[in-house]
């Protein structure tokens, strides 16, 4: 009986699946090129960057926080990596330097949120601007081209016909899903998101867990940044700046509560795929990309409001029951 209950899909799961299928149908009807292997591969060549950033963001949002600086962290890491690469540094070292920068970004966010206690949205709004400024200063406001060809493998290679970055995304998603479900750290993330005080009172080292969460998010942004540098063979400060909105939208669409405590990376990836398909269909149908901006914003609002309404509804029902 208990097991049966577990198998029953959640409301959010149904909505997500319906949205996914609905968009596939729309895509198939709208363009005969939509369901071709070529097109699907091109979706999977472009969306992993956003996907990787979004799963990192999921980890932070589950703790009841948020990282509005994730987009500019990606830009900063891309610029650092680009500068190192063009200065002739070995590729491995260049990537390592950008990863180190990401760790520092994550640490700064975590210090502001976990140690000083600034509300996460406010703290990361500040660092968003700071990282963007740092990236602009480092790149002197220019885009960095002349990325060495040897670096192209990360964003342009395929293994058995599948883009390398898609494989990276799948690997990272599986790892984080297992961490969330099966590791003590994952359980602690969820516990903090539900009630950080009670978690601390239960012996969860909340500061340490939050540091890890923000660092993971920044590092994933850095990986996404490196992939994009490799794919488009340039590095710019505003890379990733436009990713923030769709990423947050994808996270909440994927079933993670914006207030924390509930969620998973699987849903987030489905959310990102949905957004990727929407923009792909628009491109195929020749609809201007401006509609995408409109669509992402509307979806975000609709999803949060919808979640809030169902949540309030549940709360009221419970109160009635307990009477």
């Amino acid at each position: 009986m208990e097991k049966m209950k577990k198998l029953r899909p959640s409301l959010n799961g149904i909505v997500l699946l319906a949205a996914f299928l609905g968009i596939v149908v729309i895509g198939t009807v709208a363009s005969r090129n939509f369901l071709t292997i070529r097109n699907i591969l091109s979706i999977f060549q472009q969306m992993p960057e956003m996907g990787i950033m979004a799963i990192g963001l999921t980890i932070v949002i589950i703790t009841g926080g948020n990282d509005l600086s994730s987009g500019t962290t990606m830009g900063l890491c891309a610029v650092i990596s680009g500068l190192c690469l063009t200065s002739g540094m070995p590729i491995a070292l260049a990537v390592l330097v950008s990863l180190a920068a990401a760790v520092l970004c994550g640490c700064l966010n975590a210090v502001l949120v976990a140690v000083i206690g600034i509300p996460p949205m406010i703290a990361t709004l500040g660092t968003q601007m700071f990282f963007y400024g740092a990236a602009l200063v480092l790149s002197k406001g220019n885009s960095i081209s002349n990325i060495p060809r040897e670096f192209y493998f990360l964003g342009q290679n395929k293994i058995a016909g599948i883009p390398l970055q898609a494989i990276i995304l799948v690997l990272l998603t599986v790892i984080l899903a297992v961490v969330l479900k099966k590791r003590v750290f994952g359980k602690h993330l969820i516990a903090i998101g539900n009630n950080s005080k009670a978690s601390a009172y239960s012996g969860v080292q909340t500061e340490r867990v939050l540091f890890a969460a923000y660092i993971i998010c920044s590092v994933l942004c850095c990986i996404a940044g490196n992939i994009q540098v490799s794919r488009v063979a340039t590095a710019r400060a505003d890379m990733g700046y436009s990713f923030l909105m769709p990423c947050i939208s994808a996270v909440v669409l994927g079933g993670t509560s914006i207030d924390g405590g509930i969620g998973g990376v699987g849903g987030t990836v489905v959310g990102v795929i949905i957004f990727a398909m929407i923009s792909n269909i628009m491109n195929l149908a020749g609809i201007s990309s401006f509609w995408q901006q409109l669509a992402t914003g509307s979806i975000l609002i609709l999803v949060v409001v919808f979640n809030k309404i169902t949540e309030n509804h549940k709360l009221q029902r419970r109160k009635k029951e307990s009477n």
Partner: peptide
């Protein structure tokens, strides 16, 4: 009405408002 963090709501309306005028004028 919905008691959702204002940053989330205004991030959303931010792209809606901007999206509408871009669509209207085609940029």
């Amino acid at each position: 009405r919905f008691d959702i963090h204002p940053i989330i709501i205004t991030l959303g309306t931010n792209s809606i408002y901007r999206g509408i005028i871009l669509v209207m004028t085609n940029g």
